[in-house]
Design a protein around this nucleic acid. Structure first.
Length: 260
DNA sequence: CCGGATGTTCACCT
DNA sequence: GAGGTGAACATCCG
């Protein structure tokens, strides 16, 4: 589920439904889900009695500003946000019909009885009190071409690995990156620092444009390449059999014909 | 039955 | 220091 687009949907849900509400209790029984030394005790001390003042997002990290603290929410691959049992995305979830409250790993209970819940079957997400926001790079949604150029310059790793490096550019995941590179006509295996000015400009437009377009369509899985992203798949643009390999540690599909 | 999957972190190599 | 690999997390799907 979550890449930058889904996390933005979750942020909007929290923003629309939870802002201004007062926290009466914190449910954080799953110690494994608490990251960066965060403890249930510390969460309780910082959050109980406080009101939700703002929501923010840096890449895939969602942030909730309460009175005197910040709560960082990560969704991993299978996490979702629910507010008062309302989900941000109605259907087409990773686990279509399965939806078990036993997977609630963290929750804020409000004094009006409602709850903000992070439900995550695989426990790949997490919660951190006052996370270090400086560890994340520039948000992909609005990154400028100049910033992109700076983040790629001098790197000898693959273009795909670099685009997914959250410390450099925050928000791009596996599906989105394949879609962006496919639209840009750039091979994921290219050395990140080898792109020319024109190629970087094209890539920058596609990073911003693809994120915006797929956000309108409904999520990271709505890309043009997505349905062909499997063994034996073909390029939707020119029909060539897609290449498949592990690049940047993730299964990657690309068209050897038009991605260079 | 087995392999993979929209993610992150960490240990261990080269 | 930069990169790469594999493990771990737990559940579903083909």
């Amino acid at each position: 589920m979550p890449e930058i687009i889904e996390v933005e949907y979750y942020r909007r849900l929290a923003d629309e439904r939870a802002l201004g509400r007062r926290i009466a209790a914190v449910e954080a029984d799953d110690e494994w889900f608490l990251k960066g030394g965060t403890t249930a005790t510390a969460l309780g001390a910082a959050l109980v009695g406080a009101k939700l003042r703002a929501t923010r997002r840096i890449g895939k990290l969602m942030l909730i500003d309460v009175d005197d603290a910040v709560v960082g929410l990560r969704y991993g691959m299978t996490g979702r946000l629910l507010v008062d049992d309302v989900a941000a995305i109605a259907s087409l979830e990773y686990s279509s019909d399965r939806d078990d409250p036993a997977w609630d790993r963290f929750a804020l209970r409000f004094d009006d009885g409602g709850r903000l819940v992070l439900r995550d079957p695989r426990r790949l997400g997490g919660v951190e009190l006052d996370p270090d926001e400086s560890k994340l790079g520039i948000d992909a949604w609005t990154i400028t071409t100049d910033h992109l150029a700076a983040r790629l310059a001098g790197s000898r790793t693959s273009l795909k690995a670099r685009l997914m490096d959250q410390a450099r550019i925050a928000g791009l995941g596996n599906l989105l990156t394949d879609e962006i590179l496919w639209r840009s006509g750039l091979a994921p295996t290219r050395e990140a620092g080898s792109l020319g000015v024109e190629e970087i400009a094209r890539l920058g437009e596609q990073v911003r444009g693809t994120v915006a377009e797929l956000a309108e369509r409904g999520g990271s899985h709505t890309g043009d390449l997505h349905d062909e992203r499997h063994r034996g798949g073909h390029c939707p643009a020119d029909g060539a059999p897609l290449d498949r390999a592990t690049v940047g540690g993730r299964t990657t599909y690309w068209c050897p014909e038009h991605q260079r």
